[in-house]
Design a protein around this nucleic acid. Structure first.
Lengths: 344, 344
DNA sequence: GCATTTTAGTTAAGCGCTTTCTTTACCTTT
DNA sequence: AAAGGTAAAGAAAGCGCTTAACTAAAATGC
């Protein structure tokens, strides 16, 4: 019952070649036949099979999006913004959560390639870029978003993570914090954020002496809570926490509360991403905002132009973060600092 | 440079039919040739093109998932749970946000059909099910999740929405609330929730007299805030709010706070869904929990069995909600109620 | 030892399209 | 009116795979 190009051709008394040409608006077709074919197509409710045309080298109008975790608001918001833009171009997204596992990343890469997606947008960790580079070498369009991997020459729409870390630290320093705990997962962008963070400290003649370990596992509320509790119970507890995403920051806030302390009165917390949840938590989270919508749109445009074969030269677009000040940060009133100041 | 089945055949000195058979593990193939072919496949890093086999009537191992809004935590969590299960079966998801627009729903349906997805999982509103029914008639596997549309005979994994509304109302009634404001978008499941809600009222000899209007637009924080503010400023303000999802509930809480009142002391708020954000908001949200993971898993299993051609009889699986009591609800201390009680 | 069944592998058609050549019919020229 | 040009449509090959039908060789039976 499936209506194919043959049915249309027969009904319109033309060859399938002619039908194909009017579908794709290629070649020379007379006005009359064109109208006739169009009419028959409508009448039979003919929908060209995209698999078949993909087989002939046409596009599938499908893009693979690899993210760490769709349940993380940052990534679902990012995915949504990419999807919106994709929709404008008639593209669909197949979305894959990798949980930062190299194995899954590579598996999805291979699988989607077999499915002939037109291109890939990568927002996952990709500590191992071998497979990605293979794809690039085979001229498969690949773009990276929201992670900057400067050591690889792949089209990228990134955030200036260094600046983000710098902003967070500057804000806290201005508020008089010197002993700041950091919570982050060990991925490249966080290393950059940390660099920016340290840079700001240095410029204020402070030093990041705190013993520091990356969290492992996924960036979610629980690890943030756990790490913060650890900091607070440890020796020389910090007066502020810089968490490398909002989820972790929320965990930090929860931990502070559980210790019977208050945010921001006792401990300030800065997050990163500026997702919906930053506005919902109490107190509302001061956070480094990523321009999620903008990023999504830009990376989609980028991949489309790659698919179309324009834009052969590699490029990196770096968007700038901004600090959104809410109520999770305040002046440091901690005695620890006061003592130090008195000793000057 | 793409390696095809021909390359493998040539290299292994067999026909492409033989290669195909070892790939699919069909037909009779001798041990030796089988090993040889497998070896060559590995050696050439051969990856069968799924478009080609899809053209021959095989599956694409891709499922279309239509949801209203990927940025809504309920749907991103649901999508994630479906995806996880799909991954176990080697399936991918192409996720489409419809914003509850019939036009988008139908467009995506048609587009994904052209892309030969193996089946559809629908979590969008679908007030107009015509196109869906067409698909069903053509034997395209379609399953509905998280929405119950009992007037259509389509395989469904649903929540007992009636029960959900009933639970919410019972809880509030127990706490002494009689004047309850409701915030909901006009979709079928909310109508059910409302029915359950009213049922509980009736059973306590209460009546839902409140003038009520559905919100329009998307269910997000802002509309919840707006509606609540309207209720609070109106005559006979409620002592409790039942919001038909967590996002709206959070809007409600924000509105209460903005009016200088407190949750739950002055106004109780009950949400629906039990997403991450319910645990994050202050006070933590009492909410009707949907078994999101369970639903996702069940619907994926359902669609898979439909794709495999098992399960020809239509079925509806109804999962039960449960009330998660947190701190956004408390005993009604409102004078309004006191007065009434005194008048008894 | 010959007919019969099994087993192993091949041939070829076809899935629904795109596209390069051709062919046919119709205009222009001179 | 004959040669050349051009516009419109068709024939056919082929994308990478599956599968029904077939053949050849090996195993079995009597």
């Amino acid at each position: 019952m499936k209506v194919t190009i043959y049915d249309v051709a027969k009904e319109a008394n033309v060859s399938i070649a002619t039908v194909s040409k009017v579908i794709n608006n290629t070649g020379r077709i007379g006005e009359k036949t064109k109208r006739k074919v169009l009419e028959v197509m409508k009448q039979l409710d003919y929908q060209p099979n995209m698999m078949a045309s993909a087989l002939m080298g046409k596009q599938t109008k499908t893009i693979g999006l690899l993210i760490p975790d769709l349940a993380n608001p940052f990534f679902s918001e990012l995915a949504r913004s990419i999807e919106d833009r994709a929709h404008e171009f008639g593209y669909n997204l197949v979305i894959c959560s990798t949980d930062y596992q190299t194995e899954k990343e590579n598996k999805y890469l291979a699988l989607l390639k077999r499915k002939s997606v037109d291109g890939f947008i990568l927002a996952s960790g990709f500590e191992d870029l071998n497979k990605v580079e293979e794809l690039v070498k085979e001229d498969v369009p690949v773009a990276i978003v929201a992670r900057d991997l400067p050591m690889f020459s792949i089209n990228t729409v990134a955030l200036d993570d260094f600046m983000g870390g710098y902003l967070a630290a500057s804000h806290l320093i201005e508020l008089g914090h010197q002993n700041i705990g950091v919570i982050a997962r060990d991925v490249w962008s966080n290393r950059e954020r940390l660099r920016g963070f340290k840079q700001a400290l240095e410029e204020s003649n402070l030093e990041f002496t705190r013993e520091f370990e990356y969290i492992n596992g996924i960036s979610h509320v629980e690890p943030g809570k756990f790490m913060t509790a650890k900091y607070l119970k440890g020796k020389n507890p910090p007066t502020a926490i810089f968490a490398c995403n909002d989820l972790l920051a929320i965990g930090a806030i929860q931990a502070v509360k559980e210790q019977g302390m208050r945010v921001p009165d006792d401990i300030s917390v800065v997050g990163f991403d500026n997702t919906l949840i930053a506005t919902i938590v109490e107190p509302p989270l001061t956070t480094v905002a990523q321009p999620i919508q903008h990023m999504g749109r830009e990376v989609l445009d980028l991949i489309i132009s790659m698919i179309k074969g324009e834009k052969k030269e590699k490029m990196r677009l770096t968007l700038l973060p901004s600090l959104v000040t809410r109520n999770s940060t305040a002046k440091n009133r901690n005695k620890d600092l006061k003592e130090k100041l008195e000793n000057l």
